[in-house]
């Protein structure tokens, strides 16, 4: 399991615009870099990020080899109803990690 830093509000009022900030530990090896022996390290990157809010997809991102290690993503969503925010990162070598947070809209 990769370490993750999330900044997601737990409570909001209807109509609030929430800033979601995510940081995940990942090497994002490009697949182009030779090591000290001249052997190119195989690609190992995150390929896709998906965020769903109460089952509805609110944010998707495709990653490319040009993205730095430990990718930081920030985006906004509008709080409308109480529900689960699910964050999922998928990548090479079967990388698949899901984090969930409950959002209470009062």
């Amino acid at each position: 399991m990769a370490r993750v830093l999330l900044n997601i509000p737990a409570r909001a009022y209807p109509g609030d615009i929430l800033v979601i900030r995510t940081l995940i530990q990942h090497v994002m090896e490009t697949g182009y870099r030779p090591d000290a022996d001249g052997v190119v390290a195989p690609r190992d990157i995150l390929r896709r990020f998906t965020c769903t809010y109460d089952g509805e997809v609110v944010m998707e991102a495709d990653f490319s080899p040009a993205i730095a290690a430990n990718p930081y993503l920030t985006f906004t969503l509008t709080a409308t109803r109480t529900g689960t925010i699910t964050l999922r990162w998928q990548g090479d070598n079967g990388f698949d990690q899901t984090e969930t947070r409950e959002l209470v809209v009062v």
Partner: peptide, 8 residues
């Protein structure tokens, strides 16, 4: 602290 990668 939520943006500082060192915190990982």
């Amino acid at each position: 602290d939520s943006a500082n990668p060192g915190m990982l």
